[in-house]
Nucleic acid binder design. Structure first.
Length: 274
DNA sequence: ATGTTTGTTCCGAT
DNA sequence: CATCGGAACAAACA
């Protein structure tokens, strides 16, 4: 489910609400495998204090006092839920963490319906840092570099935006809306992008991602994304063209088409292919 | 029943 | 050997 705004919301809230708690116990659901393996994971995580929670691309990183890091990728249907000790049964719980400090006890649940997500114990974040391209929200990313990265692959702009090794944090929804705002056809080959296209697209990406953050993410009709308190996001109320039938600008019928395996909405009138 | 779904990885073709 | 596109992973819903 989660793209940069959703993961940002979860990681930021976790940092505020579970920092300085100690993971006094943890349970891994039958059949679920944390990496590198469950025994190692439990041994290294148990009784560790949480120093902070951060984020790289779509990964949540829980930093422990022993300098190990829990990497959590939510895949399509992952959730992190922070509950009180005696609260409701949640669906698809894969790992349950018991957190304690002077203030009391909390339960943190990693849930994942389709299990495309993963939980990995890392020694360092360096491999992760090197794997991803810059995020559009990174102020150090300039138009020249952005365009150069996009043109380094022979593919469509839609596909390039979803390739995390090139540009990270962007997923299908925000890519779709950013291309609409920038008036770029999603099947435009990156080699055909102009400098002006790059200016508009980078600006549009920053706009939709920052709006998404401000609105605490997007929750679709399946309600799969919720924040750590189980609350829905609000950005779905501000989608430009994703899931729409008619263009908000010119009222044309929106085209829905699978591009590089992902459902894509675009306005054939406002987004001409080059 | 068939076609969808916020993501990533890996395999086969070129 | 490098690159790219698409299948596969799995579960729920319309």
């Amino acid at each position: 489910m989660p793209e940069l705004p959703e993961v940002y919301t979860i990681a930021t809230d976790l940092n505020s609400y579970i920092k300085d708690y100690v993971i006094t116990d943890l349970r891994i659901a039958r059949g679920y495998i944390a990496l590198p393996d469950n025994d190692t994971f439990i041994k290294e995580v148990k009784n560790q204090k949480i120093e902070k929670v951060s984020r790289i691309a779509k990964n949540i990183l829980i930093h422990l006092e022993n300098k190990k890091i829990i990497q959590i990728h939510l895949g399509m249907t992952g959730r992190m839920l922070l509950r009180s000790p005696k609260q409701q049964a949640d669906k698809w719980v894969r790992i349950l963490f018991k957190l304690e400090n002077k203030l009391g006890t909390k339960i943190l649940k990693f849930c994942d319906m389709r299990t495309f997500g993963k939980v990995v114990l890392l020694k360092t974040t360096s491999t992760l840092k090197n794997k991803y391209g810059p995020e559009p929200v990174d102020e150090n990313l300039n138009t020249e570099r952005f365009l150069e990265i996009l043109k380094s692959k022979k593919t469509t702009i839609k596909n390039a935006l979803l390739t995390q090794e090139l540009i990270s944090g962007v997923g299908n929804i925000y890519a779709t809306d950013a291309l609409f705002i920038a008036k770029i056809h999603p099947e435009t080959l990156t080699k055909n992008l102009s400098y002006d296209d790059a200016i508009n697209l980078l600006k549009s990406l920053r706009k939709v991602l920052n709006e998404g953050i401000k609105n605490r993410g997007s929750t679709l009709s399946d309600k799969m994304y919720v924040d750590i308190f189980g609350r829905e996001g609000k950005h779905q109320n501000f989608f430009r063209i994703y899931s729409k039938n008619f263009c908000p600008t010119c009222k044309s019928k929106v085209v829905y088409k699978t591009i590089n395996g992902r459902g894509t909405y675009f306005c054939p009138s406002c987004q001409k292919k080059k």
